[in-house]
Design a protein around this nucleic acid. Structure first.
Length: 479
RNA sequence: UCCUCCUUAGCUCAGCAGGUUAGAGCACAUGACUGUUAAUCAUGGGGUCCCAGGUUCGAGCCCUGGAGGAGGAGCCA
């Protein structure tokens, strides 16, 4: 085991007047004739540790201790004479593990724009903001597993490479080992996929749901948590080409059980992060407040970040049907004054502006909408007795929009098969999916939570590219 | 993919009616300073004005095309 200590532990333990060794990256150095102060951060916490070094003793080494350099320090942990920190280390020995030429090192001891930091994503983890974000990202991942494990769910690894593009969830990335310069053709002149690696056309997964359903109809309660790929040319603050999705699937759950789980799950995740990352969350709360202050009054959030998170955990989500949503929109002053770009009428898909109105203006809290017209939803959703709606549910969050999409699944073989026919979903490719309805079918439900969208909500960040270490977006796969 | 905006020093940005040598703040370097807190003060170095073409006596500025970025929309998580 290494002999050095994590700064997070050093600050917590407060084992005063003991000799310790710490290693980390220099954030700033301040010096006068006699003494130099070095703030080093090792990523273990938001806090940096202050190193105090006598200039006379360390003159040569101090010249190489610049912002961004990596150093190892051995010294005595003592109470700080300064006001900003409780303890500091009186350096006895300083070793420069890696220099950082201050003229060319991109990060300076000043605030950088998020856009700039995206261009140096290989270094941005060394900043306060991204350190906090990725520590929280870890905690949030951990919370997901904790939640499901505690409730008897099994973590199911669904495939990344799939043959079915039947779900119709947008453009897919093709997976192939064929030589693109010399693609084998069939007699009819089409691409001969029988010569491809899997002997058929394959893609990266757009959802683990169909396979998760197979798991639920055997293991009972399962969830997936893995990468998901969409080749859509989406350029927004809420879309990635590669993102992480959590998809629980539950046997014997109806749409109401599904909603209960979704609400409880999301609240748990928020509470977990609030409890386990108080320092990072405090930092992001202040950051959020500064960001808000630069906005126009009408665009400002009514609540601070922490305030909003606490609010969400304490209040129940509003639950309405699609028809009720249309009713509310039709009666709204926005509609009457013609403020909506897209006209409101039963049967249309709710546009961003409508969802935002419901969540941010009308209810001012998360909203779950159920009972959508079957025409605008996927083939596998359970058809309601009214013959025109399905047991779908969308969970809408302020500032984010749709954070969860789910449904009770159609367990009736005939109805499912008929719907697939109507929507031109190839049944021969999905024979295995249909067999679960043929053999021992049962009511079941599930949903998908966009992990990065949850991150956006919890961290208060405005752009999804800033809550994943290395974002994949159209024209960007640099790192 | 559509609409709008942006691209000038390492970073954030200013620049004019199209006119000689392109500016500021921060960062960085050097010096000063008896414990600093993104230290302070002084001095200094630093430019492919995104790329290609065009108009013009003359283009950072005007025109055409391209690339990249941001925000919004659609698609969705």
């Amino acid at each position: 085991m290494p002999t050095h200590q994590l700064i997070a532990k050093v600050l917590k333990n407060n084992a005063l007047n003991e000799s310790i060794t710490v290693k980390g990256w220099v954030r700033t150095k301040r010096a006068n004739k006699n003494v130099a102060f070095i703030a080093i951060n090792d990523g273990s916490s938001l806090q940096s540790l202050q190193i105090v070094a006598e200039v006379a003793k360390f003159e040569d080494v101090l010249r190489r201790v610049t912002t961004g350099a990596c150093i190892a320090v051995e010294g005595l942990l003592v109470p700080s004479q300064g006001k900003e920190q409780a303890v500091e280390v009186l350096a006895n020995h300083i070793a420069v593990l890696g220099e950082a030429d201050p003229e060319s090192y991109p990060l300076q001891k000043k605030a950088h724009s998020l856009e700039f930091l995206r261009e140096v994503a290989h270094l941005r983890m060394r900043t306060n903001t991204f350190g906090a974000i990725f520590r929280i990202r870890h905690a949030l991942s951990f919370a997901v597993h904790q939640y499901f494990n505690d409730r008897g769910f099994f973590y199911l690894h669904t495939p990344i490479i799939t043959a079915s593009d039947a779900e119709g969830a947008g453009q897919m990335f093709r997976v192939t080992t064929l030589d693109l310069e010399h693609v084998p053709k069939t007699a009819e002149g089409k691409v001969d996929y029988t010569q491809d690696f899997f002997g058929r056309s394959t893609n990266l997964t757009v959802s683990g749901q169909l396979e998760a359903e197979l798991g639920a109809l055997g293991l009972g309660l399962v969830y997936t948590f893995g990468p998901t790929f969409r080749a859509e040319n989406s350029n927004t603050t809420r879309h990635l080409a590669e993102f992480w999705m959590i998809e629980p699937e539950m046997a014997f759950y109806d749409i109401n059980d599904n909603m209960d789980l979704a609400e409880d799950f999301v609240k748990y995740l928020i509470s977990y992060v609030l409890e386990h990352c108080p320092e990072d969350m405090q930092f992001l709360d202040e950051r959020f407040a500064k960001e808000e202050a630069t906005k126009k009054a009408e665009e400002r959030s009514a609540m601070g970040l922490l305030q909003r998170l606490h609010f969400v955990t304490k209040h129940s989500f509003e639950r309405i049907t699609y028809s009720q949503a249309i009713e509310i929109l039709l009666n709204s002053s926005y509609h009457k004054k013609g403020k909506f770009v897209f006209p409101v009428q039963w049967g249309m898909d709710l546009q961003s502006e409508h969802e935002r109105y419901l969540v941010e203006k009308h209810f001012e809290k998360p909203v779950i909408i159920t009972g959508y017209p079957k025409e605008i939803k996927a083939f596998y959703m359970k058809q309601n007795p009214d013959g025109r709606t399905v047991a779908a549910m969308d969970v809408l969050f302020p500032g984010i929009g749709e954070i969860i999409g789910g449904s009770q699944r159609e367990e009736n073989l005939e109805k499912l098969s008929q719907r697939m026919q109507e929507m031109h979903v190839p049944q021969d490719v999905l024979w295995w999916y249909l067999e679960t309805r043929k053999f021992g079918t049962c009511p079941h439900s599930g949903f998908g939570l966009g992990f990065e969208r949850m991150m956006l909500f919890i961290t208060g960040m405005g752009n999804i590219r800033d809550v994943i270490p290395f974002p994949r977006t159209p024209k960007n796969a640099e790192f």
